[in-house]
Design a protein around this nucleic acid. Structure first.
Lengths: 95, 95
DNA sequence: AGCATAGTAACGCATGTCGTTACACGTTAC
DNA sequence: GTAACGTGTAACGACATGCGTTACTATGCT
């Protein structure tokens, strides 16, 4: 099945991690060891989740880095598919 | 289980896609619609697989973009874990 | 010799992550 | 009203990365 409109990972982060714990953005940024702006950019979909950030999130919330990067991947792929039109690519088979 | 030494995706690309088909780097680059240098950089582990490249590879080889990006993710994560030492991150629980 | 293949260095361009600083807006407390 | 806090965000710089072109080098095949 295809993801038709995956949310950016920042949305999930806010709704599934920060809000349930009642943690403020400022507090979470401190805990993660990044600037408030960096976290804010992610939460608002203006920045993606870098591998290092995935490791930080995993440590802070007791999840796996892969789960965060997977979400990011799905989102990036969706965005790229939409922005890039049809790519002119030949199918490669036996020479 | 943990990946202890994931190869960069370029290795897989060369060994599992180009070589079996007997396709040259130059030819593959043409088919993919990228420069020879761009493909070469990937094959030799000097560049990662971007979302757009994943789409190209998927089209050319009849695979899924996710499979390529997943390999890239595993590799990036492994590299980041090694390069970045222990991240100072607080565990976040209920406020 | 002549040609194809491959790796790579130099450069430039665009984008993206992250930090600091600073400003504007809301909400809550005094 | 005013002060404090939380939040979003614009501006700026630092740095990395993906991609392209061009050109040089090396290696192999005919």
């Amino acid at each position: 099945m295809k993801m038709h409109n995956p949310p950016h990972p920042g949305e999930i982060l806010r709704e599934l991690c920060l809000e349930p714990l009642g943690v403020t953005v400022t507090r979470a940024a401190e805990a993660l060891g990044v600037s408030r702006k960096t976290l804010s950019s992610i939460l608002n979909g203006r920045a993606g989740i870098s591998p290092e950030m995935a490791l930080r999130l995993a440590k802070a919330f007791g999840t796996s880095p892969e789960s965060w990067l997977n979400q990011q991947m799905q989102y990036d792929l969706w965005v790229t598919e939409k922005s890039v039109g049809k790519l002119r690519v030949e199918k490669l088979s036996a020479a």
